[in-house]
Amino acid sequence: MSLILFIEQMLNGLQFGVMLFLMAAGLTLIFGVMGLINLAHGSLYMIGAFAAAWVAGLTGSFVLALIAALAAAAAAGALVEVVVIRRLYARDHLDQVLATFALILMFSEGTRWVFGSFPLFLEIPPYLSGPVRLPGGIQYPLYRLAIIVAGLIVAAGLFALIARTRIGIQIRAGEADREMIGALGVNIAALYTVVFALGAALAGLAGALIGAIQSVQVGMGEPVLILAFVVIVIGGIGSIKGALVGALLVGLTDTMGRFLLPVAFAQVMAPAAATAVGSALASMAIYILMALVLIFRPRGLYGVA
């Protein structure tokens, strides 16, 4: 195992973690501010991917595809919040789970009806294709590096939005005491719609970015949703900083586990057995990580005590 290969896998883990952050940031905002369990968040990720693939196919522009993903996911999120979610805030969490699970089925079948059952493909633009040479002679795909940079820029922008803007102050106040900010004249309904649309737009952006690496297909959001929930549990519900740290931990743990464990077991097992055992343990690694965090930090790494 070479050092270059190890660093490449670390970068892959970082890219995976950044993508998870885009999913988890919106999810933790929605849960933290509204106290809502939104199982349909993965469907918004899927909508962003399909919107991007469709617009890219029509226009050939990757930038327009990203804009379409943001707009489509945000619009779908705002519509869902106004029509469905708004009626669930005062309801039991079980009602929220059942209602948002129904939304998953509706979005999946609606997407299949509009785009068909066959996957779509989003091409990497020429200016982001091919490898880039990094220090140490490392050749790494330029597009994956661009995802890392874009994700970190979005993270910085989100931190600035939450910490330094009026809407950010309202969001943080809504997490602490929604009744009080309502009494101070803040339009709670509008705030919730904005938060939900923002979370949906981040999920749609993640779907569009990852759509150029894997195929865009119905149901692609559900596996990522599970990982996003793991991220916010590790990082702490309602914490953007926790979502970033948790996402990077999950991305690196999953990627490096799949890379290192088969290699480690190959020292004492036959190659086929080492691959099978290492891959099985690697798939459990993030859940073991979550369990360890919850043992020592039951509210997550940056959860409110």
Rank of each mutant, 00 (worst) to 15 (best):
P298V: 07
V194F: 13
P119F: 10
S283Y: 13
V55L: 14
V84L: 15
L128Y: 05
I4Y: 05
G303P: 02
L289V: 10
Y89S: 09
V55A: 11
P135I: 09
L58P: 04
G26Y: 04
V218N: 10
A272G: 06
A285Q: 07
L98N: 11
G257F: 05
A155R: 07
A183N: 09
A282C: 13
P141F: 07
D92A: 08
P262K: 10
G257D: 09
G17D: 09
F101E: 09
T59Q: 05
Y140A: 01
I295A: 11
F196L: 09
A282Y: 11
F107G: 04
V218A: 15
R91Q: 11
L289Q: 10
L103M: 15
P141E: 07
V245S: 03
S117F: 10
F115D: 07
G235H: 05
A73P: 03
G32T: 07
A65V: 08
A173N: 09
G242P: 03
V268A: 11
L29N: 12
E8S: 14
S2W: 05
F159P: 00
V55F: 08
G236L: 04
P141Q: 03
L3F: 12
I237E: 01
A203P: 06
Y127C: 04
I138C: 04
G251F: 00
H41V: 11
L294E: 02
S2E: 14
G219N: 12
D95L: 10
I67E: 05
L294F: 01
I288P: 04
Q15P: 04
